[in-house]
Design a protein around this nucleic acid. Structure first.
Lengths: 215, 215
DNA sequence: CGTTTGGTTGAAATGTGTCAAACTTTGTGG
DNA sequence: CCACAAAGTTTGACACATTTCAACCAAACG
C-alpha cells in the first residue's frame, strides 16, 4: 500500500479518470462531488477515516465523480490487481467490499430523499445527524459532539441550498437550541430534538452493531 | 426461479423487510421509493425489464426502501441461497451483479445532483433523457420515442417538485418543442435540445456499448 | 353513463436565491 | 508576537421559483 499525504482542497481522483488503483482514507476528511454542465457542484458524499470511497473503479472503468480533500489527509493506494487477487483468494473480502459499496448506495438514496423532500431546516438537521452518527461509528465523536471540518459553502453544495441560506438555517438550529457550533466543533445540544427535526432514522446506514444505530 | 404476476401500484417488497430472495423484473415497470417521517414519498429509481432492483438484500439484511409496480409486472424470484451458490461457483456472476449495483449507485449520485442543483425545467428534462436512454438500452424505444408509464404525480415524487409544477414544467418542455406527450407515449422532438436543457451526459450510466451512450 | 383517476390552469403565499456589504476568524510572513 | 491578508461567517433587502389551494377538464373504466 502506497501512502500519500494530501493537502486540503486537493482533488484525489477526478471525474473522467480511469484509475488503476483504489485508495483508503486513513486520516482526514474528504468528499465526493459532481459538477453540472453549468458548473454547479453537488457534494454527494462525505468520507471519514477508514472509508474506501472509490472501490467502484474496480469494476467501472471511468469515474463519474471527483473526490477531494476537506482537510489534510493521508491515504493509502492499493493497485487494482492486488485487490482483485485478494478478492479471488478470500471471498469474504469480496463480500465485505461489495457490502460496503451497497451501504454507500443506501446513503445516496437517503440523500436523494433528503434533498428532494425536506426543506432547508430538516435537510440540514439530517445531514448533521448523519455526520454525528458516522463520526461516532468511526470513533471520532464523544457522545453527541465532534469535529465538523466542513465550511458552510461546502454544506451548501451538499444540501443543495445556498451558502447564505445554510447560514440562516444553522442560526435557526442554534436558536432552537438543537446544536452548538464553535469554530469547527459541533455539538448536538438536544440529540432527540435534532433527530426529530431531521426525521432521522439510521437504518439506512446498515450498522452491524445495533448499539451504534440506537443512540 | 419462481414467477409471479403483479398488478399495478402494488408493493413487491417493503422497507423493513428481511427478504430471503431477490427478484428480477421480467416485464413491466417498477420503482424504488422511500418515505419521510412526514409521509412524503421520494422515488429514488425507476426499473425497466431486465433489472434486478433488490440485489442488495443479498448482503444487507433489512431493506431501507420499498419497491412497487408502476404497471402490471411479471417478476421472477430467486432464493438468496441459490444466488449465493451461483456466485460462489461462477465468480463472473459475482462481478456482474456487483457491477450492476455499482451502476445503480452511480445513478443515485446523478439523481442527488439532479435534485440538488437543477431547477424544475432541467430536472425534468434530465429525468426524461435518462428514461429514454435506458428504455433504448432495454430495447424498448425506437429512436427517441418510447412509453412513459409514469403519472405526473409519480414524476413529482421522483423529481422532488409538486404535481402541479410537474405539469407546468412538462407544458413548458412541450411549448419549447423539446418533447411530445400523447397519452403515455413520449417522444423527444429535439433530442439534442432536450439533452442540452438537461445537461445530460450518459457517462454515469456506464454503458458497455459506447453506441448506446453516444446517441 | 356515472365515477374515478389523471391532467390542466389561476391566484396568492412562501421558502429560498441573489446581491451586496460588514464582520470574524484563521493563518502567515515580517 | 503583531499586522495583515485571506477565508469563512453573518446580516439585510429584494427577486423569484416553486408551493399551496382550489377548481375545472379529459380520459379511462367498470
Amino acid at each position: 500500500m502506497q501512502l500519500s499525504d494530501i493537502r486540503p482542497d486537493q482533488e484525489i481522483v477526478r471525474e473522467g479518470d480511469r484509475p488503476s488503483r483504489c485508495f483508503a482514507l486513513l486520516e482526514g476528511f474528504a468528499c465526493t462531488s459532481k459538477v453540472t454542465d453549468e458548473g454547479k457542484r453537488q457534494i454527494v458524499a462525505f468520507h471519514v477515516p477508514g472509508d474506501m470511497p472509490d472501490v467502484q473503479s474496480l469494476h467501472l472503468d471511468v469515474l463519474d465523480f471527483t473526490i477531494g480533500t476537506l482537510t489534510p489527509c493521508t491515504i493509502g493506494f492499493i493497485q487494482h490487481e492486488v485487490l482483485r487477487d485478494l478478492c479471488a483468494r478470500f471471498p469474504r473480502i469480496t463480500g465485505a467490499l461489495w457490502r460496503d459499496t451497497l451501504i454507500s448506495g443506501a446513503i445516496f438514496r437517503e440523500w436523494v430523499m433528503n434533498v428532494g423532500q425536506r426543506q432547508a431546516y430538516g435537510r440540514m438537521a439530517h445531514l448533521l445527524c448523519e455526520w454525528i452518527v458516522r463520526m461516532r461509528a468511526a470513533g471520532l465523536a464523544e457522545e453527541h459532539a465532534c469535529e465538523l471540518p466542513i465550511t458552510q459553502s461546502e454544506l451548501a453544495d451538499a444540501t443543495g441550498i445556498t451558502t447564505v441560506h445554510v447560514n440562516r438555517t444553522l442560526m435557526e438550529l442554534r436558536r432552537d437550541r438543537l446544536i452548538e457550533l464553535k469554530g469547527s466543533k459541533l455539538r448536538a445540544l438536544d440529540w432527540e430534538g435534532l433527530k426529530q427535526a431531521a426525521g432521522f432514522d439510521p437504518t439506512y446506514l446498515h450498522f452491524r452493531n445495533p448499539a451504534a444505530a440506537a443512540a
